[in-house]
Design a protein around this nucleic acid. Structure first.
Lengths: 210, 210
DNA sequence: GTCTATAAAGAGATAGAC
DNA sequence: GTCTATCTCTTTATAGAC
C-alpha cells in the first residue's frame, strides 16, 4: 500500500456543486468568453490543468448551468402552483416561487439569461427547449387565470407571459439583497404591480369595466 | 498631383455610423468578447488592420455604442414627454417613445444592456452615469404622475421605474418585427399592462379603492 | 484608407509525473 | 485529484508599403 504524500493531503475534492457555483459567479462578473479557465481554477484553489479532471471542456460548465437552473425553476414553480386552487392566487404564488428560486441561484440564472449565445448551436437548441418548457408553465398559469375570468382576456397569454417574465427575470440584473427590499417584498411589489397595475385605484372609477 | 491608383478606387469610406452599426450587430449575435476584429472588418469588406485607421481599439466601439444609445434615448424620451401636460398621458408617451427608440436602434440597445461589464472600469462608470441619468428621467415622469394622483403612491418611484424599465428594456431580447405585433402595438400592450394591470376589470369591484 | 506581414500576449486543452 | 510543462491556435494591435 502506498503512503499518502503531502500532495495527496493537499488534494481537495472540488465537487460538482462548488464547481458550477464558482463558474457561474465568474461568468456573471466577467462574462463567459472573457472568463479564463485559469481564473476559474484560481477561484477554486487549483491549477487550470486540474480543472480538466472534472470537466471535458469549458463549455460543459455553461451548458450545465443553463440546464440546471432552468430545470430547477420549472420543477419548483410548477409544484408550487399545483397546490393552489384559486387561479389568481396561483399567479401570485408563481411570482413568489420564481423570484425565490431565481434569486437563490442568482449567479446561475444571470448566466443562463445572458450567455445563451455562447453555447454551441446543438446545446443552445436544447437549452431553448428547456426555456420554452418553462415559459409554457408560466403561460399555463396565466391562461388558467384568464379562462377563470380572473385576468383580462384582451391580451394574448403569450404577451402576458412575456411581460411577467420580463418583470421577473430582469430584476435579477439589478436586485441587491442589501438594497432595501427583501426577496419576498420584491416579489410582493412586482406581483401587485403586474396584477393590479400602476394606476391609482381612485382613478379606476373613471374607466368603466367592459 | 498623384494619379488615383486601383487601390484608391477600391477604397470606401467606412463611415462612423456604418462602423458602429456593424459592430453592434456583430456584438449582439456573438457577444463583444467573442466577436473578433477580423469578423467585424470582414463584415465591412476590409481587413482588420484597416479597422485601426478608424478606431483606437476595439473597446472604443463598445463604449461609443453605449454612450450613443443612452444619450439618444434620454433626449428623445425627455423631449417627447415635455409636450405632455397630463401626467398619466406622459407615462404612456414615455413608453411609446422608449420602445420606438430602443427598437429602432435595437442592436445598439441590446449591446448596451448586455455588455456593460466588458468595458474598462473608468468607462463603465461613465456609462452607468448615463444610464442613471436616463433612469432619472423615467423616475421623474413616474413621480409626477404619482404626485398628481394618477399613479398609486404605495410603491416607491424607484421600484415603479425599475419595473417599467424591466418591462420595456428586456422586450428587446425577444421582440421580432415579424413575430406579430408592430412596435406601436407592443408599446400599447405594455403600456396598458403597466398602467391598468393584468387583472380582469370586472374583478376590480371586489377591491375597494383606499 | 487599405493592404501584407508580424509582433506579443493569452487562450483552451493535453501529456505525463506524482 | 492535482501538478508542471507545453502545444497549438487565436487574438489584438502595430509597422510600413502602396
Amino acid at each position: 500500500v502506498r503512503r499518502r504524500s503531502a500532495q495527496d493531503l493537499a488534494s481537495v475534492d472540488v465537487g460538482n456543486g462548488k464547481l458550477l457555483a464558482a463558474a457561474a459567479s465568474l461568468f456573471r462578473s466577467t462574462g463567459y468568453t472573457a472568463a479564463t479557465t485559469r481564473d476559474l481554477a484560481g477561484a477554486l484553489g487549483i491549477k487550470s490543468a486540474s480543472l480538466y479532471y472534472h470537466i471535458g471542456k469549458k463549455e460543459d460548465l455553461l451548458y450545465q448551468i443553463c440546464v440546471d437552473s432552468l430545470e430547477r425553476i420549472r420543477v419548483v414553480v410548477r409544484s408550487s402552483v399545483a397546490d393552489e386552487s384559486d387561479p389568481l392566487e396561483a399567479v401570485r404564488v408563481m411570482i413568489r416561487a420564481h423570484m425565490a428560486t431565481a434569486l437563490a441561484d442568482t449567479d446561475m440564472h444571470f448566466t443562463m439569461l445572458s450567455e445563451l449565445r455562447s453555447l454551441s448551436s446543438g446545446r443552445r437548441a436544447k437549452v431553448v427547449q428547456l426555456r420554452d418548457a418553462y415559459e409554457a408553465v408560466v403561460r399555463g398559469v396565466i391562461q388558467r387565470a384568464q379562462r377563470a375570468g380572473s385576468l383580462r382576456q384582451d391580451i394574448r397569454p403569450k404577451y402576458m407571459a412575456l411581460a411577467v417574465l420580463n418583470l421577473l427575470n430582469w430584476s435579477i440584473f439589478w436586485y441587491r439583497p442589501r438594497g432595501g427590499l427583501s426577496i419576498d417584498e420584491l416579489a410582493e411589489t412586482l406581483s401587485e404591480l403586474f396584477i393590479d397595475g400602476a394606476v391609482d385605484p381612485r382613478r379606476r372609477s373613471t374607466k368603466r369595466p367592459r
